[in-house]
């Protein structure tokens, strides 16, 4: 069980969190303007890298805030956490 440093509450046990997949995937401005391919890309296609990955977490059994993290998917090590709305920090894995 990892410790996840919630940017609002500090480090907490992984079991308190809910995972939200890739971060920074914005809901399209105007979905009706998108082709089926473009819409499918938004609905179903996410990055799945082996290495640093900007992703969303929710401290669901704590402050219930969503935040973002950069985590190395090879080691599962959290490289950075940052609040929603903040840009992804530069990290080196």
């Amino acid at each position: 069980m990892q410790l996840i440093p919630c940017p609002w509450c500090g480090p907490r046990e992984e079991a308190e969190f809910r995972y939200g997949g890739q971060a920074h995937v914005a809901y399209p401005e105007d979905p009706s303007a998108l082709s089926d391919e473009e819409w499918a890309r938004y609905v179903f296609f996410r990055e799945n890298p082996s290495g640093p990955f900007a992703e969303r977490w929710s401290h669901s059994a704590g402050c219930r805030r969503w935040f973002n993290a950069v985590r190395d998917t090879r080691t599962h090590e959290l490289l950075a956490v940052y609040r929603a709305g903040e840009p992804a920090p530069e990290v080196t894995a």
Binding site: M1, A15, G21, S50, F53, R71, T73, R74, H76
Partner: peptide
């Protein structure tokens, strides 16, 4: 395990 991971390890809980 809920998160993406290539580490071939999961969480003990």
């Amino acid at each position: 395990d809920s998160y993406n991971g290539y580490g071939q390890r999961g969480s003990f809980h």
